[in-house]
Design a protein around this nucleic acid. Structure first.
Lengths: 131, 131
DNA sequence: TCTATAGTTTACCTTAACGTAAACTTATTG
DNA sequence: CAATAAGTTTACGTTAAGGTAAACTATAGA
């Protein structure tokens, strides 16, 4: 039988509160099963949560996270499958997201460079003071 | 004489509103001079704005942006200059920020990998449909 | 049986980052 | 001189992402 998790287990593992998990459910990011009234999270929920938190860390809103996750999640294997147009649109979206991510990478690299400079100046001063 | 900018010029250049610029001033990020009542932004303000927007794009709050900018800005050349302890603390902070940024880079790379996979699957399907 | 412990829903509160509207002041221009 | 256009302050509104409190249920252990 497949792994499942209680709300507290997931909360503890990812260092968030149960409230946040319920909130994400409200936002359609998670959709746990129920055991009576209790939420029972599946491995799929756990994965979606992980991706959500990853998205948040790089500055995406929950709405954006949801869009990205749903996009990359071929769970919609409904009857008629994806038609050509859908697939092409997906490719377009991927291109856009890739551009956004590469932009963020550039921003990070630029910041890292500045930091390295400041660190050098800083160390130089320290050396001079210790001399 | 040094370059200066009106609120509208800066707003247009960075695709934000004058309101946002006033807001950043309120948050101590910018501190434009005045010509009567009008704000006159210096090159320094422009740079700080640029760094702020860069920080925002990689998911930092305005408060974090301010901290980072002030840290990397050796404008506090006050009388007694930086003492050893201050410099060491700065190095520590830089280390922390670097770790955060590297973490974000990893998150981005992981996302890019997933995207590439999905794109491949997508293109495979398209090829099959077109065949 | 009493009491922790984990869980639930409902509902209002909070913070960040602005948006929006009102009411008013210069500066320029037809 | 009237009318834009750009700017100002003050103040209330809004959205996202939860926090927090109240009131209640279910279950496991002393």
């Amino acid at each position: 039988m497949p792994q499942t998790y209680s709300i507290r287990e997931l909360a503890r593992e990812f260092q968030i509160t149960p409230r946040a998990l319920r909130f994400y459910e409200d936002k359609q990011i998670l959709s746990p099963q129920r055991d009576g009234a209790r939420r029972v999270y599946s491995e799929r929920d756990r994965t979606r949560l992980k991706l959500t938190l990853r998205g948040k860390r790089i500055g995406f809103s929950l709405e954006e996270c949801l869009e990205i996750i749903d996009m990359y999640n071929p769970a919609q294997a409904d009857g008629k499958a994806d038609d050509t147009l859908q697939l092409l649109r997906l490719c377009q979206k991927i291109g856009q997201h890739r551009a956004a991510l590469l932009g963020k990478m550039n921003d990070i690299e630029a910041t890292l460079k500045t930091m390295a400079k400041v660190e050098q100046q800083c160390l130089d001063k320290l050396v001079r003071q210790a001399a």
